[in-house]
């Protein structure tokens, strides 16, 4: 049984960075913009989070730094695809490159440097609940923040005017124009907010989960987040569940190895990606019907409506 609890607890810990990135991507895609640069936003978020924590000594300021770095990178995506109408896939991948370069350029000073990371904090009372407590309430503060962030983002998207405008941008942007709103401004805001969340996810990786910075440490989590959003049908609540599923897949390898099972590491490493592909294969067609209309046009490479 403890293996199950280990894997699930590992799923929450390891899945939270993916969840933040998935939430960010949800906000962005709800406005009609897919951002493959999420991987890059996580990278710069991880480095900025780590560096700011190292310089200030406070992981909280570090987390903000990570979010700011993610937002900054996403603002380039917004500029390129929203304002300059560049191709969304090409722009996203370009930003990944930029992030790889920038983080290795500025990151070399922080490799091996020690910081004062987020520490585990047991929620009084709740953490004593068998299983549940161990899985959900013996974690770092950024994980507790995510418990609030998920319903909050749902509320903003579906119960506020701001969310309504973002969703309209993704469904039918000319309805915004007719009502006197600027599509460009709303989409840019959504993309940048999404980048901030992805940056926060990256920061969680470096200052709460791995407590280290090394080059290219995100290794595909950002891309998993992009896929996750699709089969979560652009719903923040389902993103949460999906992220924990992938976190668990990631946690399986160390949990098995700790128990002395001689499983090939790479066979386990590949699980999250194969799992993502399988889930997309099973659910992809069905969930795609729920895609925002203008995002669907991006997926189908349909010429932009004028």
């Amino acid at each position: 049984m403890s293996l199950v609890v280990d894997v699930l607890a590992g799923g929450v810990r390891g899945g939270t960075s993916i969840m933040y990135a998935g939430l960010g991507e949800t906000v962005s895609e709800r406005s009609g913009v897919i951002n493959l640069g999420t991987e890059g936003a996580m990278l710069v978020g991880a480095l900025a989070g780590y560096a700011v924590t190292a310089e200030t000594g406070s992981p909280w300021i570090g987390a903000l730094g990570g979010a700011a770095a993610g937002a900054l990178l996403a603002s380039i995506h917004a500029l390129l695809v929203v304002v300059r109408k560049a191709n969304q896939f090409a722009s996203g991948l370009t930003l990944l490159f930029l992030a790889l370069g920038v983080t290795s350029f500025y990151g070399s000073d922080y490799v091996g440097k020690s910081i004062n990371p987020f520490t585990k904090w047991d929620v009084p009372g709740l953490s004593d609940i068998p299983w549940i407590g161990e899985i959900f309430f013996q974690n770092d503060p950024l994980i507790y923040v995510s418990y609030v962030a998920v319903p909050l983002i749902w509320f903003v998207l579906f119960r506020t005017r701001m969310g309504l405008l973002v969703r309209t941008a993704g469904e039918r942007s000319d309805s915004l124009t007719v009502n006197g709103y600027s599509v460009e401004r709303i989409r840019s805001a959504a993309v940048i907010a999404g980048g901030a969340l992805s940056g926060l996810g990256g920061a969680h990786l470096s200052i709460a989960y791995a407590n280290a910075w090394f080059e290219n440490m995100v290794v595909g989590r950002g891309f998993i987040a992009v896929a996750l959003v699709i089969f979560a049908s652009w719903s923040p609540l389902r993103v949460m569940g999906g992220a924990y599923l992938f976190g668990s897949a990631l946690a399986l390898a160390p949990a098995l190895q700790a128990r002395g099972y001689g499983v090939n590491q790479f066979a386990l490493d590949v699980i999250p990606f194969v799992l993502t592909l399988l889930v997309l294969a099973v659910l992809g067609k069905r969930t795609l019907a729920a895609a925002p209309d203008e995002l669907k046009r991006v997926f189908e490479n349909a010429p932009a409506k004028t």
Binding site: T160, R161, P292
Partner: peptide
């Protein structure tokens, strides 16, 4: 007709009406 098909009637009308930040 510039309505958003995925939205409810309420959401569509809210889009055009002035009002607070919360729906």
């Amino acid at each position: 007709l510039r309505l958003v098909p995925a939205f409810t009637v309420v959401e569509n009308i809210a889009l055009s009406m002035a009002g607070g930040q919360f729906l």
